[in-house]
């Protein structure tokens, strides 16, 4: 912020080039920063040089040069003389001395209003969206993200697919472990980032074809969101119809549905890098198959929660297996639509 020492040092600077309306750009900027900064920062600013500054800054000057504050050079002797200063001072006060507390009050009022608005939004948001539940899905670290991407693209050798349960002190299960601790836990970080990247990549592809328009981004985002919603709806419907006793949240399904964007991004990037048609289709088939395999393994606990004693209810188990396989196979279709 503003430092009066630096100001004093600058007073002896180039006294010859005095202009009737001097302009100190540095001081100018700092006063503006002052008026925009939160109110508590404004209080300790020393009044005296600030007044000078405002007078200087307020007088409209055609010279916005880098000449340093010569006006105060003249100002200072005037103060010593004591003659012209009170006049100027009253003038300054009439212009700015009144303005300053008003500006502070306004800033404080605005700050209060902002805080209240934020609190209101948060309160209302908490009513509709379970913020801690969403935060759980973004609790990731670098290692998790890298490992998860590796699993998404090469899921064949990954061996344990079960999610770790988080247990309370008494040993009771209370939800699943966060993605930071458990590699098999679904997160929302990778899907969201992959979604944004996919939308931007589509914009890039359109730009390279010369047909970019800002609406392209909107269309792509809307279409891919529609695909995710459709998939989540179909899975929920299937879970209901097969009467699978699952307590998975919708966010889990959104996460699993969003993982396919990673494979889609790889394929689209291959296409953009100028590989031939067969290579692109090969990569597409590979990524779709790996994504399907990933979902097959990681949604197994969703579709077959009672895997231990499932041999007793054979037809239903078979049906659920088919349901799981259909989810995995639908990835091929959805990814094909997304790549187009």
């Amino acid at each position: 912020m503003y430092q009066p020492n630096a100001y004093q040092q600058q007073q002896g600077y180039d006294p010859n080039s005095y202009t009737p309306s001097p302009q100190n750009q540095k001081g100018h900027g700092s006063t503006f920063a002052n008026s925009r900064s939160p109110p508590p920062l404004q209080h300790p600013v020393p009044q005296h040089p600030i007044l000078n500054f405002r007078a200087d800054a307020a007088s409209p000057s055609p010279q916005m040069s880098h000449q340093q504050p010569q006006g105060n050079m003249n100002y200072y002797p005037q103060q010593q003389a004591g003659n012209a200063y009170p006049q100027q001072n009253s003038n300054i006060y009439s212009q700015f001395g009144f303005n300053d507390p008003a500006a502070q009050m306004g800033m404080q009022f605005a700050g209060n209003a902002m805080a209240q608005g934020t609190a209101y939004v948060e309160q209302n948001l908490n009513r509709w969206v379970n913020i801690p539940a969403v935060k759980h899905y973004f609790n990731v670290n670098n290692l998790y993200v890298i490992n998860k991407m590796r699993i998404l693209l090469f899921p064949w050798r990954h061996s344990p697919w079960t999610r770790m349960a988080r247990r309370s002190d008494t040993g009771q299960m209370e939800g699943y472990a966060a993605p930071r601790e458990d590699i098999n836990s679904p997160d929302l970080y990778i899907p969201v980032m992959a979604f944004v990247t996919y939308v931007l990549l589509c914009g890039l592809a359109a730009g390279r074809k010369g047909s970019f328009h800002p609406e392209v981004l909107g269309f792509t985002a809307s279409a891919s969101l529609a695909i995710v919603f459709t998939e989540v709806l179909l899975i929920r419907l299937g879970v209901y119809l097969l009467s699978i006793p699952s307590d998975t949240s919708v966010l889990d399904l959104v996460a699993y549905s969003g993982y396919k964007f990673v494979g889609v991004i790889v394929t689209t990037a291959m296409k953009q890098l100028g590989f031939g048609g067969w290579a692109v289709y090969g990569v597409f088939l590979y990524t779709a198959l790996s994504c399907g395999f990933f979902l097959l393994r990681s949604m197994r606990y969703l579709a077959l929660p009672d895997a231990g004693n499932a041999s007793t209810m054979n037809p239903q188990r078979k049906r659920r297996m088919w349901f799981l396989l259909m989810i995995a196979a639908s990835q091929l279709l959805f990814m094909f639509v997304l790549i187009k």
Binding site: F219, S222, A223, L225
Partner: peptide, 9 residues
């Protein structure tokens, strides 16, 4: 690819 959120609705 013309199926967006509005069409889904």
């Amino acid at each position: 690819m013309a199926l967006g959120l509005g069409q889904l609705l």
